[in-house]
């Protein structure tokens, strides 16, 4: 892949904070994702998840979560505009130019996710399948993120 191919994609994103025992789905193991009604649940912390769904579905995600968690201490915040996503094909090697995670394809497996840095930009990485890595970045960092990928790709040998 080349950085020029990168196009930001939009997804519904909802930040969920709650007691893991109160969730309407089986919480994923640390640094992995699970699926809940065709949505991805990304583990971000012991009481923090990012629910990712089809673009525009943030309202229904929020409603379902609120119904399920009614009466319990929780926080459900629509963050669909707070990050944008890029899907990188065969991009792990390139990401290793600026990310300290173990992105060896034999260790970084589909369904794994983690919060880290790429260069100076915060990223959430989510491995969708063998070849596709989804990188969530803040929109304000998108230009930097793509440019640093492009520069890193150009000096790879």
């Amino acid at each position: 892949m080349t950085a020029e191919d990168l196009v930001a994609i939009e997804r519904a994103q909802v930040s969920l904070r709650a007691d893991p025992r109160s969730l309407p789905f089986e919480p994923p193991d640390p640094n992995t994702s699970a699926t809940w009604s065709a949505r991805d649940i990304l583990w971000l912390g012991p009481d923090e998840w990012l629910v990712v769904g089809e673009a525009g579905s943030e309202g229904s995600i929020e409603r379902e979560l609120r119904d399920a968690l009614a009466g319990q201490h929780h926080s459900i915040v629509d963050v669909s505009a707070n990050r944008i996503a890029f899907d990188l094909t065969d991009g792990l090697d390139l990401l290793a130019s600026g990310c300290g995670l173990d992105l060896d394809p034999n260790r970084w497996l589909p369904r794994m996710c983690a919060q880290s840095l790429f260069g100076g930009a915060q990223v959430i990485l989510h491995q969708l399948d063998e070849r596709t890595t989804r990188a969530f970045v803040r929109p304000s960092f998108a230009g930097y993120f793509v440019e640093r990928l492009r520069i890193s790709a150009s000096v790879r040998s």
């Binding site: 130019s97 260069g119 929109p139 304000s140 930097y144 520069i151 000096v155």
Partner: peptide
Amino acid sequence: AGPDRGDLLDPVRRTR
């Protein structure tokens, strides 16, 4: 510094 120099020395953030 590697690639983190020039325009990439520090991320530049831009609003929408």
